[in-house]
């Protein structure tokens, strides 16, 4: 049924307030999770949840963009828009994962990197750039899954990975449809048209080779209906880990380099 949806329908589904958020995946997909905080420079960004998870007796570093489930939690989580310290926390823990040879799984769900005075003062652009740069050479396998919104550079800073997957009704875009419409047509109300042009759905992006896999999701997608999807993701994560465990560090790094080099 959802295959008949327009791109704009999917934008709305990807942003729906009762759509499962990162914390739901962390608790349902992994056997245990210890959260670790802070970037060691400035603070702890609650739009990014990160730590060490156990999965089938393997340790994995999980780093996730976290939206809230209601207005109150969204205020705390800054609507899932990370600040520079969020990107720096993510990078710190990716380096830690590399040191202890743990694979890394990143969950992407953000309207974009936070845009405000203090984010600029603390180097939002530098923080994102540094993640792209360092992630490209990390010697352990990295998997990114877009579970909701993948908003531009703020999402890409979690997406320089060996594989990038998207849930069927998630989106990944260079700019929000509203932003695009207001720049191109000076009319933010034409966002549905923009969503169509931007090719931001999972099906468009697999065709463009920007992503590697589309994960099916139920039509009515909430925490209560996510069990099948969770089982599917678990199987696929195991396959990802199995296929990368045979690779040398050089192969892991060069396959990631080549993945982006050809785009």
């Amino acid at each position: 049924m959802t295959d008949k949806l327009t791109p704009w329908d999917r934008v709305k589904l990807a942003r729906k307030i009762d759509r499962p958020t990162s914390s739901d995946y962390i608790s349902k997909v992994f056997d245990s999770f210890i959260e670790l905080h802070g970037d060691r420079y400035y603070g702890d960004d609650s739009a990014v949840v990160a730590g060490i998870a156990k999965y089938n007796y393997q340790s994995i570093t999980v780093i996730a963009q976290q939206k809230g489930k209601n207005i109150k939690e969204n205020k705390k989580r800054n609507y899932g828009m990370p600040k520079p310290e969020g990107y720096r926390k993510a990078l710190r823990l990716m380096k830690q994962a590399e040191k202890f040879k743990r694979p890394i799984i990143l969950l992407i769900d953000t309207p974009g990197a936070f845009c405000g005075i203090e984010a600029e003062e603390r180097g939002q652009g530098e923080a994102i750039a540094k993640n792209l740069y360092e992630m490209s050479s990390i010697k352990v396998p990295i998997l990114s899954i877009v579970i909701g919104e993948g908003g531009s550079g703020g999402a890409l800073a979690f997406g320089v990975s060996n594989e990038v997957w998207m849930l069927k009704n998630s989106i990944y875009s260079v700019i929000s449809p509203e932003g695009f419409a207001s720049i191109i047509w000076k009319d933010g109300k034409r966002a549905p048209e923009a969503a169509d042009l931007l090719k931001l759905t999972a099906h468009d992006l697999i065709r463009l080779k920007i992503i590697d896999k589309v994960i099916d999701e139920p039509d009515e997608f909430t925490v209560d209906s996510m069990d099948n999807l969770v089982n599917d993701i678990k199987t696929q994560i195991q396959q990802f880990l199995d296929s990368h465990i045979k690779m040398t560090e050089e192969e892991i790094v060069s396959s990631r380099y080549n993945r982006f080099r050809t785009l």
């Binding site: 740069y133 890409l156 260079v174 931001l200 920007i210 785009l263």
Partner: peptide, 26 residues
């Protein structure tokens, strides 16, 4: 910034150029 007329392909150029710089750095 990124050229939005090229959609996500333009965003990917950020990763591509940064990865190439890391190799230059190494």
């Amino acid at each position: 910034g990124a050229r939005m007329q090229e959609g996500m392909v333009s965003l990917m150029q950020m990763a591509k150029t940064s990865a190439a710089l890391k190799r230059h750095d190494k």
